[in-house]
């Protein structure tokens, strides 16, 4: 294997430098190099959305991006969603509306929903369902999950 590259990127507003191999995905580096394990792996092939992160304002699956491609980028993960002790309205709504059961897909849904609200601050139910269709949840049947996002919109 070739050697490691030094990558500089902004992670949740803070500049970080890390070493990674060219074959390592952003997901692997977030989890196993930076120990930001809030971003989850569900499939490692872009099908489930559990590893949703926002890179330079664009929602993507961290498993489908190589970590070396993050050079110079700004990466937002679940660990940066709250502001200190102040939860993001989406996080509060997921707790209050029981928008999660097992919780493995939750960080991905939260980041995906944040990306939606960043672009479309007042989506209707159909827009929420359409946007979140790239994230899989096996527990909730989506009802309370979609309601949580809609409640965060009201907040």
């Amino acid at each position: 294997m070739s050697g490691k590259s030094l990558v500089t990127a902004t992670i949740n507003g803070e500049e970080k430098q890390f070493l990674c191999e060219p074959r390592q995905s952003l997901l692997e580096v977030l989890r196993d190099v930076l120990y930001l394990t809030g971003t989850k792996e569900g499939c490692n092939d872009g099908n489930c959305g559990a590893c949703s992160v926002i890179v330079d304002g664009v929602l993507l699956d961290a498993c489908c991006m190589l970590a070396v491609e993050a050079e110079g980028s700004s990466v937002e993960t679940i660990e940066g969603l709250a502001t200190g002790d102040e939860l993001h309205p989406l996080q509060r709504a997921f707790l209050e509306e029981t928008g999660l059961q097992c919780g493995i897909c939750t960080p991905g849904f939260l980041m995906s929903a944040k990306a939606l609200l960043d672009k479309t601050p007042r989506p209707d139910e159909q827009q929420v369902r359409h946007w979140l269709a790239g994230n899989l949840c096996r527990c909730t049947g989506y009802d309370k999950l979609v309601r949580s996002v809609l409640k965060a919109v009201e907040a």
Binding site: T37, G38, T77, I78, E79, L81, L95, L110
Partner: peptide, 10 residues
């Protein structure tokens, strides 16, 4: 679970 701190198996 909403902040990413919960420790799952992986």
């Amino acid at each position: 679970k909403v902040t990413g701190r919960a420790q799952f198996a992986d």
